[in-house]
Design a protein around this nucleic acid. Structure first.
Lengths: 202, 202
DNA sequence: GCTCCAATATGAATGGTGTTCACATAGCTT
DNA sequence: AAGCTATGTGAACACCATTCATATTGGAGC
């Protein structure tokens, strides 16, 4: 793990910049990240990164894509347990919330760095892939595509809302004791709803 | 509505800066906002605002508080319809989603400007007040405080998640047709869950 | 093994930003 | 009318993103 004594050429500046960026975000929040400081951390001049990223935004986008890939991997792992689809979907929900908890740096860049995702179709595609994990499970629970879509979206929005508000301290700030444990109860309540509705209609 | 021909003293720079900030956020997104440009918009030197705001962050915080107050007002209005509590809570949910839609500038500053709310208890307090609107309704639906808390939190996180993802284009990007109409279906599904569970237990 | 090119790094320069500070102006109280 | 205080100005500083001319070097092809 010893650093190679580099001269002039860095060797792998691209990933070094991404690592430095994530470290800075961890230390100072998504707003405190600075290209210049990341360059300094990587031990390189401020203009060097422009050989690897068109922009500051381009670096952030790279991180968002990395985050979406990681998220999808973790959601997929959660969905691969041996259990009925309802429990799998619950696991996916919990994995989403847990992702925000365990990768606050990635999550912050993904959702608080202020990049306008509408302008970057690649980001939309990669986050849609992650959403697909939930959608597939929902289709195994709900009969009609419409209600499956609704169930997947409900799980997704609840997970994302909980994760976001939790990261911001909004949930802790509301003063109820066991915010942590209630994440699961939330999803369970919703999943029971999905069942009771579809079964009632059958 | 004619502007007074001002000289030297502005008269109401504080609200003028807030207005200018919101206008810039509307035009260029939460990241495009700049103290200098807002000062220019308000027709004042760049150092003048420092008589009213300690910081750039202080101006943003002021806007977040304004946003929370507006949100609370609108949620309260939604809860004041004549209807059973379940329908009221549904209305509150829809009002939250609608708030993000109708005040994208406020919503962006509240949740995308990158201020660390954990450091500002006033913000937590004001958003907790807005949450209270949902909590009160949930208490009229669920018998035990615990499940009422869970219901309120479920509605809240789903509303926030839907609003956030919708603003970012993530929901549109997933490719399902009527994303707009499904917001209501989501909440309905959840509210039926709350009912079926509590009634089953009674 | 040498040559040369493409990839990658440097450093200086530019225009913009947040913030501070000494100083200027004017509204209000007395 | 006088003067205090709130509010404004302009210049200054350090930092930031980005660009450009220039320097270095790893490696492909000979």
């Amino acid at each position: 793990m010893q650093k190679k004594a580099r001269s002039y050429h860095h060797g792998d500046l691209k990933t070094a910049m991404i690592d430095a960026a994530l470290q800075l975000v961890r230390e100072k929040g998504p707003r405190g990240f600075t290209l210049n400081e990341a360059s300094r951390t990587a031990g390189v001049s401020v203009s060097a990164p422009y050989n690897h990223f068109k922009d500051k935004a381009a670096l952030l986008i790279e991180i968002v894509l990395l985050g979406n890939r990681t998220l999808e991997t973790e959601l997929r792992a959660a969905a691969d347990i041996v259990a009925p689809p309802t429990e799998k979907l619950l696991a996916v929900y919990l994995a989403y919330v847990s992702f925000a908890d365990r990768h606050p740096d990635l999550f912050a860049v993904m959702f608080q760095s202020g990049i306008n995702k509408t302008h970057y179709p690649e980001i939309q595609a990669s986050s849609a892939k992650a959403f697909g994990v939930a959608a597939v499970l929902a289709l195994q629970i709900e009969s009609s595509p419409t209600s499956a879509w609704q169930l997947a979206l409900a799980i997704w929005t609840m997970a994302h809302g909980f994760a976001t508000l939790s990261v911001e301290g909004a949930i802790a700030g509301v003063g109820f004791p066991e915010a942590k444990g209630s994440a699961e109860a939330l999803a369970r309540k919703l999943l029971y709803a999905g069942r009771s509705e579809s079964e009632a209609r059958t």
